[in-house]
Simulated scan of single mutants.
Amino acid sequence: MVENPIDLLVKSQQVALKLAGDTLRTVRNTAVTGVTQPDELVRQVGDLAGAVAGMAGAITGLAGATAQPLQDFIVRQRELAETVATLAEAQSELASVVATLAERHADAVTALERVTAPVFAVVGTDPTPPKTRASRVTARAEAAATKNAPVKPAPPKKAPAKKADS
């Protein structure tokens, strides 16, 4: 058996063309023989039927040569789709684990801030802002809100009440 599907396809086409040529030649010869030799006509009709059966076999071989690689390709694509789905599930689980880790870490940092805040207050230091993307986004949002906030005028000062002389 031929291993390469393209070679099998080429061979099947060559056989099919040969059989088609033989069939046409036989049909032409049958027309001439039918008039001159009726017994030969019967034999040629039998040969023609055999040639048609051979063409059917060649067509089946051609269909098999093209269908098998396509079927293999589809199977490989299905396997790839299942692999990608498995990877997506694993990434989803990993994202859940990382989100839980981030929450726990944030809780630990909050607890550490509560414990150290009195020490920093006694020492007199200001907290250092974190250098994270979230803190930069929050700082920008706060700055924009402060910049865009309408400024309320200060309420007018009341004059101190005068004491009445008694």
Rank of each mutant, 00 (worst) to 15 (best):
I6L: 09
A90R: 15
G34Q: 13
S12Q: 05
D126G: 12
A117Q: 13
A81P: 08
R136Y: 03
K11G: 06
L9Q: 01
N4I: 03
A143Q: 04
K158G: 05
S135V: 12
G21A: 07
G50I: 04
A111Q: 13
L80P: 02
S135T: 00
A53G: 14
V45K: 07
A106P: 14
A58R: 02
A139S: 04
G54K: 06
P129A: 13
L112P: 08
Q37K: 13
Q13I: 14
R140G: 14
A20Y: 04
P150V: 12
R140V: 14
E3G: 02
N148M: 03
A121P: 01
A81K: 14
R133F: 05
R78V: 04
F120N: 15
A141G: 07
K157F: 10
D47V: 07
P155A: 05
A149P: 10
P38I: 01
T146L: 13
V45M: 09
A102T: 14
K157Q: 09
P153V: 09
V84R: 08
G64P: 11
V15M: 04
V151M: 02
L24E: 10
G61Y: 00
I6T: 06
T33K: 01
V122Q: 05
S135P: 01
E89D: 11
D126Y: 01
Q77L: 04
A81F: 03
V42N: 06
Q71W: 11
G21V: 02
F73T: 00
P69Q: 10
D107T: 12
G34F: 11
V123W: 01
A58S: 07
L94D: 15
L94H: 15
L94T: 13
V35T: 06
A154S: 08
Q14E: 12
K157M: 07
Q13V: 05
R133A: 13
S166H: 12
A20M: 13
V52I: 00
K163F: 00
D107A: 15
E113R: 09
D126M: 08
A65G: 11
A117P: 06
R136E: 11
T138R: 00
M55K: 01
A159V: 01
N148I: 01
T146V: 09
L62F: 07
A154L: 07
L70G: 09
G46V: 08
A53T: 06
T60M: 04
I74C: 10
I74S: 06
A51M: 14
A49E: 09
V35D: 11
T83E: 08
V119T: 09
L41K: 11
R28S: 12
Q68D: 09
A145P: 10
L80S: 13
L101M: 09
V123K: 00
D39E: 11
A111I: 10
I59A: 15
S92A: 02
T125Y: 07
P118W: 04
P5V: 00
A141I: 01
D107N: 05
L87R: 00
Q91D: 05
T100S: 07
V27Q: 00
S12W: 00
E82M: 02
D107H: 11
A90Q: 14
G64R: 03
G124P: 05
